[in-house]
Write a protein that binds this DNA or RNA. Structure first.
Lengths: 131, 131
DNA sequence: TTTTCAGTTGACGTAAACGTTAATAAGTTG
DNA sequence: CAACTTATTAACGTTTACGTCAACTGAAAA
């Protein structure tokens, strides 16, 4: 059975403000149904929203996030459209793989730094002669 | 021997504008030396700048990038300072590991999507009966 | 029925990260 | 030396992603 959320329900659940939800609708990222004048969010809206928020955490802009969501939504009939989605998906995939490598580099550098500092700290704590 | 760059040299080299370099100086991310009134960027400025740009590509804000660069620059004498750097570094490391996992999730989803679309495409091209 | 409460639509405000323009100075080239 | 060229500071403009506030609308509770 379908769960429904009011705007503040969903906002509270995912720790954002109602304003954010209205804005995402304004830019076409979400399309909740209306019950009279009020918005009603279904489960698929929540899932979509969670994808948006993950994208935001990763530093993507909203248009870029919209692009990626479009990749999923598109259920194209035309072969050329399929090929297009395939191409755009591959490009994004490429970007993301690069981003992962960059992040792994940062992680490794931080890890190395950590080891160095921990070593220095141990020497200090032991009362090393070189100090 | 030390390489020097004028502001437009460095901007061109890393495909940004001089304005960006002046701005990064304004917020304390870079500190080029002065030759009279003009800025001169040394190799360490370039390296630092490349770290900044990588951070930007990864979606970090400039203050956050400044924090991370501080971790490297800090060469603390006090034990408490060392412990502080260690703590902050660990926190960042944690964030980054989460970000890597998020990105890997996105990558996997895109990869799966790719396979599905490629399959559909092949069926269409073969002139599948279900169409 | 009268608050009251959550929700609605504008509309303007804001912070970050620069872009753009103006006015000026300092080398460098013909 | 005049004319460029490249640099400088200062200041205002711009976009993104909302925050904030005002005025209004239903629905529900007292």
């Amino acid at each position: 059975m379908e769960r429904h959320y009011t705007i503040s329900d969903l906002a509270e659940l995912l720790d954002i403000t109602p304003r954010t939800l209205r804005y995402y609708e304004e830019v076409g990222l979400l399309t909740p149904i209306r019950q009279g004048t009020q918005r009603l969010y279904r489960d698929r809206d929540r899932v979509r929203l969670q994808l948006i928020l993950r994208g935001r955490r990763l530093g993507f802009g909203l248009p870029e996030i919209a692009d990626m969501l479009d990749l999923y939504d598109a259920d194209p009939t035309e072969i050329t459209q399929l090929q297009d989605v395939l191409q755009r998906g591959d490009k994004k995939l490429h970007d993301i793989e690069r981003q992962i490598r960059d992040l792994e580099a940062v992680r490794d550098e931080l890890t190395e730094l950590r080891t160095r500092i921990a070593k220095t700290l141990l020497q200090k704590l032991r009362g090393d002669p070189t100090e």
